[in-house]
Design a protein around this nucleic acid. Structure first.
Lengths: 233, 233
DNA sequence: CAGTGGTCTAGACCACCAC
DNA sequence: TGGTGGTCTAGACCACTGA
């Protein structure tokens, strides 16, 4: 095929996006059908579809069968965060990683933990507290609950040399994850282990994972003061 | 075509994912070529490609031309957040939205703001502070800087009835955005306007936007204590 | 129920980059 | 430089859903 008649989906995407930015297609407007856009640009409908898929993922347009494609009236900022295992996060900053196991107990799951997993009755879980250090400074204190029923083998893992974080990631892939961020004041264990003044504002990451509908683990990770999370691009 | 021979890319994706989860394909392993997988499943290569695209976006595999497809050795948790305009966020919670303009000044951009935009020399900007309320309770206090040079018309906007947040979103689409999250202790204006005790942990969202390379706005939004952000899905 | 986006196929060529 | 994923086409049918 002649180069002059080849079109890349990124070109189409950029042209459509430009029209949205300069309000040729204003917020709330309905865009032409994919087929019409394809004809205008002289490309295949699949190419337009690929472009629209990207704009849709980015939150710029909304697409519905029969309803057509609309410019989102209330654009949202969509940000994606990569949350690596802590060791890797520390090492990528060029710091030396260390890890300390604080406690390890088998306990009945409290209500709050059951709620996170969405289970109705209490079960025995492995309750692990640990500290991650960067260049020997406290970095993240984690308070983790691990389901025993679905993986009794975790009871045999030596968690003094390897964090539960790491063991789980390499041995227990999940099929569903829920992540949320919040802020809390340092107190008690958090303050103590993070060497943070009582009352300091801590950034908190909560992550719960399942394999199918079976709980795997839920962790509340409190970062030392000054922690900041930045979106990819 | 016979239904028995039709295959959906989600089926292919789920089967591949299952093999990754059960370690048929272990972390670091190289997967077969798309074409071989297509032959195995009896579908077109494009269908496999679509499935792989999804797994790749999810962070489960990495794909490289010539290099092939590999299961990621260090899986990351990837979470996407929608950050709507505050009015919409409040209304979606079923609460009544209100807004108060606190201050509006034209000032030289301080160093910290120049750094956020990545510009070298100070310029005059519009500095706006405002409070968003949900059911008449302080919800988010925002401290915003708006570039005047690229949009002098913002000087004529009445910001007492409509938040800068909203005006910008509906009138100044951006082409690049940077988002970061952190935590800080309430003090001074933040504490006062959010009616939060001095020292409370506040969740902070920083967002900076550009159109091309031209700065548009940067905002530091501090949420009232108890705020929590949860990922889509 | 009909219009629109979503998917699938088969085949071709392209572009990157590991070998 | 050859192998692999990435893209594009043309055409067909499907599936959701709004008019």
């Amino acid at each position: 095929m002649n180069l002059d008649t080849r079109h890349s989906w990124t070109d189409v995407r950029d042209k459509i996006r430009a029209r949205i930015l300069d309000r040729t297609y204003a917020p709330g407007d309905k865009l032409p059908r994919d087929e019409d856009i394809a004809r205008e640009f002289g490309c295949a409908r699949t190419t337009v579809h690929r472009a629209m898929q990207d704009l849709s993922l980015a939150g710029l347009v909304e697409r519905k069968r029969k309803g057509g494609t609309h410019v989102r009236a209330d654009p949202v900022t969509r940000a994606t965060f990569d949350i690596p295992i802590t060791r890797r996060e520390v090492e990528q900053k060029g710091a030396k990683y260390n890890y300390q196991l604080i406690s390890r107990e088998i306990e009945q799951s409290p209500i709050a933990i059951m709620a996170r997993f969405g289970i109705q009755s209490a079960v025995e879980m492995l309750h692990v507290k640990a500290l991650h250090l960067a260049d020997n400074c406290p970095y993240i204190f984690e308070d983790r609950w691990i389901d025993i029923q679905s993986m009794p083998e975790v009871l045999d893992v030596d968690l003094t040399g390897q964090s539960a974080n790491e063991w789980l990631v390499h041995n227990k892939p999940y099929s569903r994850v829920e992540v949320s961020f919040s802020a809390m004041n340092a107190e008690g264990e958090n303050a103590q282990h993070l060497s943070a003044p009582v009352g300091s504002a801590l950034f908190v990451i909560e992550r719960t994972t399942w394999i199918g509908t079976a709980p795997i683990t839920t962790v509340q990770a409190a970062a030392a003061p000054g922690y900041r999370l930045t979106a990819r691009n």
